[in-house]
C-alpha cells in the first residue's frame, strides 16, 4: 500500500428516485489512497457519509474483478472512465492526479430506467437475450465434449464475441443509445458456432426486433461502443449482425 494520500473532488449524481429531479452534488475525499479502486473510493466516501448520518451514494457493484458487468459509472463523460478495456471496478486512483475533479453519472438511456443515484435498471438487456441469445438443447446426459469439430478461426472469433459481460457501457457511451454492440456480440458469437446454426435466422430477427422494442436507438457507426467496451468487443460484430439479418430475410414476417 502506498503511504501517500491524495485529494479527489467528486461531483456525484444524486437522485432519490425515478420521479424526483436529480443533480450533481460536490464531495471531497482528502485522504484517498492511490491504490484504491474507484469503487473503493466510493465505499470510503459512503462510510464517512453514514458516520455523519447522511444517505450513502447508491451504486451497482458485485465481483469487483472486472468480469461480472455490474459496475456502471460514467466518469467525466466516459463509460467506465478513461482506461481502455477496463471496467470501472478495475480503475485505480493512481491513474488520477492529486486534486483532480471527477464527475460521476449513471448510464443514461430511455431503455435503462433510473432507480436511485447511480443505479439504473438494465433488465432490457436481459430481455434482448431472452429473445434469442441462447441455443436450445435437449435434456438428458450432456453431449460429449469435442464431439463437434469447430475450426480454430471460428472458435477464436466466437470466443472474442463471447467476452461480453453485459454491462451496457456500449449503450451508455453511444450518442444514439444503441444496443447494437451488445446484441451483435451474441448474434456473431453463435453464428460462428455449429451449435448456434439451427436457430440462427430466428435468433437475429427476434433479437433485432427486441432491441427496438426496448427503446434503444439506431446505430450510426460511431464506434464509441468499441472504445469503451471493457471486453474490447469489436464493431465487426455489428457488421456480422447485419449480414445475419440479411440472410434471415426468409424468417421475417
Amino acid at each position: 500500500m502506498s503511504d501517500q494520500t491524495m485529494t479527489i473532488h467528486l461531483k456525484i449524481w444524486r437522485q432519490k428516485d425515478k420521479n424526483s429531479p436529480g443533480k450533481l452534488v460536490d464531495y471531497t475525499v482528502d485522504d484517498a489512497n492511490p491504490d484504491m479502486s474507484f469503487l473503493e473510493l466510493l465505499d470510503w466516501l459512503n462510510e464517512r457519509l453514514m458516520n455523519e448520518g447522511r444517505e450513502p451514494v447508491e451504486f451497482d457493484h458485485d465481483c469487483r474483478e472486472g468480469i461480472c458487468g455490474s459496475c456502471n459509472l460514467v466518469l467525466n463523460g466516459m463509460a467506465h472512465g478513461p482506461m481502455q478495456g477496463t471496467a470501472v471496478c478495475q480503475l485505480h486512483m493512481r491513474k488520477y492526479k492529486d486534486g483532480d475533479t471527477i464527475v460521476v453519472e449513471p448510464w443514461r438511456a430511455r431503455a435503462f430506467p433510473h432507480i436511485k443515484d447511480l443505479v439504473v435498471d438494465r433488465s432490457a438487456l436481459d430481455r434482448i437475450m431472452a429473445a434469442g441469445g441462447y441455443i436450445s438443447v435437449n435434456t438428458g446426459a450432456p453431449a460429449d465434449a469435442n464431439a463437434i469439430p469447430i475450426n480454430k478461426y471460428d472458435a477464436d472469433l466466437a470466443f472474442d464475441y463471447a467476452a461480453c459481460i453485459g454491462c451496457g457501457a456500449c449503450v451508455a457511451a453511444c450518442p444514439n443509445s444503441s444496443a447494437s454492440l451488445f446484441t451483435g456480440a451474441k448474434i456473431a458469437q453463435l453464428a460462428h458456432l455449429p451449435q448456434g446454426h439451427p436457430e440462427r435466422k430466428k435468433r437475429v430477427v427476434s433479437m433485432v426486433d427486441k432491441m427496438a422494442d426496448e427503446g434503444f436507438g439506431d446505430c450510426s457507426n460511431y464506434a464509441e461502443c468499441e472504445a469503451v467496451c471493457p471486453a474490447e468487443i469489436s464493431i465487426t460484430s455489428i457488421a456480422e449482425m447485419r449480414r445475419e439479418y440479411f440472410k434471415a430475410l426468409s424468417e421475417i414476417e
Partner: peptide
C-alpha cells in the same frame, strides 16, 4: 429524431474515449 427520444436525460458531461471510436468532426 430517434436518437433524441432514446436519451431523454442528457449527460452533464460527455466525452469520447478516443481509440477505436470513430466519433469525429465528420461523423458527429
Amino acid at each position: 429524431l430517434e436518437r433524441r427520444k432514446a436519451r431523454p436525460d442528457k449527460y452533464e458531461m460527455y466525452a469520447s474515449r478516443g481509440g477505436a471510436s470513430r466519433q469525429s468532426w465528420s461523423s458527429s
